[in-house]
Amino acid sequence: MSDSTATGAKVRVLIGKPGLDGHDRGAKYVAHILRDAGFEVIYTGIRRTPEQIVDAAIQEDVKMIGLSLLSGAHNTLFKRVLDLLKEKGAEDIIVFGGGTIPPDDVPGLEAMGIKAVFGPGTPAKEIVDTLNSCLA
């Protein structure tokens, strides 16, 4: 399912918590369900700078980055992550996000390059299916 068919290797995903927000229930839960679904997940822990997240993603050679944020700083910090990926020539890494994100902000985030935004209560299956279709 999430094995890349050519090599059989697991798809690597980095789950990151940018900024100062400490709410990590959602991030840890998503990390867990992605592992259950066959992804290889690296979780950064809370309070990482966008620089730390992007460096870790490149170093760990991940295919995807999931950003979780509940503080309302998503417009600034998600953008910073995308900008840094571009600067470092790593814009092929797929970035998705989740948390307390007002629906009005979603089109803007998608326009800047966030591939999917998962709000509170999104079922695990929907997250996994969406990520798999992003990879297809």
């Binding site: 900024g19 100062l20 927000d21 700083a73 600034t76 910090l77 910073r80």
Partner: peptide, 10 residues
């Protein structure tokens, strides 16, 4: 710098 995007939010 650490406060970027977070000022006055929560």
């Amino acid at each position: 710098d650490m406060s970027a995007g977070e000022v006055g939010k929560v």
